[in-house]
Nucleic acid binder design. Structure first.
Length: 476
RNA sequence: GGCGCUAUCGUCUAACGGUUAGGACAGAGCCCUCUCAAGGCUUAAAUACGAGUUCGAUUCUCGUUAGCGCUACCA
């Protein structure tokens, strides 16, 4: 049975890299009828925040991503400690009574890596037990094998065969002196206990995996199968640095894209294209298509740049992809998002469903985000819109306002109100007054929508509705 | 410093020894057109560098350089 997990630590908002890790896990699970597990890795009590946890849930909810099982590590500390104890009893871990050094530089300088505190490995079991019983604090460390030539190896489904000499692996901590398991201990214990079959996570854990292999080997029963590993390339900033809120601002948070009016799925689609490819030049894909085609073989090995600037936090390709989805998805699927956007902006939603769908269908052809419906599309829903500068230019064409008012009068005098009838009326007026139809067409668009650009003008007349058209033209 | 990973157009990527190195976004131009998008066409743009293996390297090997990651009683 295939089981994957996404295991964030609640120490910040939901990062877009984390979101992508969730998505790849989720896609892999859904693709292979597996189980998606959400596990909150909250063993660092000092840094955990409720706000961060909320942000994770909010982000995943917005992206419409779900999971089948939920755990939090703080509920499972006994399991972690028991597994550490088992490793200790096998002699594969030892108590280190040396206090933590405040400055970690102290450890590592001097050329080679820091491996362990001198003497701590050699403390006799009797002395160790005695000092522990006396209440002396200690950190439980893994006793990394020190025989010359000992190699740790594993196969990564993305990065291939990996090896590392144990001479380069330090005696890492399993249990802190305050009794809390470390990330490595808790993560491995849970992965084992939850029978995770594939650990799919960021590449920043690639070198940690050697430690995890050591823990798995020490903690599992003989013959137990180790999880498979698949590491994902990182998402980085245009300057090559890791994305960080402090340095790069809001681009790193999924809420930024939500607030910019992205469709959840199009953002998922965009994230998928960072570090993964279906290899057939397809870019715009539905969620089902993504599920059908996702595979670890398609995952890249080099980091992917999220292309933003200080002026514009949105990657141009993400915006393009959003517009593609916005314009091509079934309008009935889009409508609820538009409805929510309008309601949030305090705009009334047309009651008649059919005409609402038609309206959305017409105006979405020029929009890029959901936000556009409430801003550039405001005049379709409310009367309190402002006429943009460039649109004003269209009205300021000599004679335009008079003509538009007259058009309003003529339309008021004609009961028929279809694209064809409006066009006929407008062209007739232009011919009667000897002006180009464009003056009336562009002027109408400006007067009716406040926008210099938009859908075909005659479609606009119908979308705005007869009453409003007449009122707006006459009031120009 | 040590160890690990990575390296194709500005960006995302395709090409699992033989291609005029393909696609997409962004850029430029043209067409279409009631505006603006969309769409169509065209254009500019890349194999980090150096060796080696091979009849032939983007592709395999080694080195250099660069970037990233790990090197915490963070995750």
């Amino acid at each position: 049975m295939l089981r994957v997990r996404f295991a964030p630590s609640p120490t910040g908002y939901l990062h877009i890299g984390s979101a992508r890790t969730f998505i790849f896990n989720w896609l892999y699970a859904r693709r292979n009828q597996g189980t998606m597990i959400l596990r909150i890795d909250d063993t660092d009590v000092d840094r955990n925040t409720q706000a961060s946890l909320d942000s994770i849930f909010d982000g995943l909810k917005w992206l419409e991503l779900d999971w089948d099982e939920f755990y939090r590590q703080s509920d499972r500390l006994d399991l972690h400690r028991a597994m550490a104890q088992r490793i200790f009893e096998k002699g594969l871990a030892y108590r280190d009574f040396v206090p933590a050094v405040a400055d970690s530089e102290e450890k590592s300088h001097g050329g080679g890596p820091w491996l362990f505190n001198p003497g701590s490995r050699e403390v006799t079991p009797e002395e160790s037990d005695r000092r522990a019983a006396a209440g002396e604090p200690f950190v439980l460390r893994f006793r990394v094998p020190r025989e010359a030539g000992r190699i740790v190896r594993f196969d990564d489904m993305v990065y291939g065969a990996q090896t590392k000499s144990t001479a380069d692996v330090e005696d890492f901590a399993l249990i802190r002196s305050n009794g809390m398991p470390t990330y490595h201990m808790a993560s491995c214990a849970d992965d084992l206990d939850l029978r995770i079959s594939h650990i799919i996570r960021g590449q920043d854990h690639l070198s940690n995996t050697f430690k995890h292999v050591l823990i798995f080997e020490a903690a599992s029963e003989p013959g137990a199968v180790m999880p498979h590993f698949a590491h994902l390339p990182l998402l980085i900033a245009p300057d090559g640095a890791k994305l960080s809120k402090r340095k790069h601002g809001p681009v790193v948070s999924v809420t930024t894209y939500r607030d910019h009016g992205f469709l959840p799925h199009s953002y998922v689609n965009f994230l998928c294209l960072l570090g993964w490819s279906p290899k057939d030049n397809r870019e715009q894909m539905t969620r089902q298509e993504l599920i059908d085609v996702f595979s670890l073989e398609g995952v890249n090995r080099s980091n992917a740049v999220v292309n933003f600037t200080e002026q514009d936090p949105i990657d141009a390709k993400a915006l393009w992809l959003n517009s593609q989805h916005l314009r091509s998805m079934p309008v009935a699927e889009l409508a609820p998002y538009v409805r929510a956007t309008l309601e949030q902006a305090g705009l009334p939603v047309p009651e008649d469903v059919a005409s609402f769908l038609h309206l959305v269908d017409v105006i979405r052809s020029r929009f890029f985000t959901l936000t556009d419906f409430a801003t550039r599309g405001r005049a379709y829903f409310a009367d309190d819109f402002v006429i943009e500068g460039k649109a004003v230019n269209n009205l300021d064409v000599p004679g335009a306002r008079e003509l538009l008012r007259e058009l309003g009068d003529r339309l008021a005098a004609t009961p028929e109100f279809t694209e064809a009838s409006v066009e006929a009326e407008l062209r007739k007026l232009a011919a009667d007054r000897g002006v180009k139809a464009g003056v009336l067409i562009n002027g109408s668009r400006a007067a009716l929508t406040g926008q210099p650009v938009g859908p075909s003008a005659f479609a606009v007349f119908l979308c705005v509705g007869r009453q409003r058209v007449i009122a707006r033209l006459r009031g120009v």
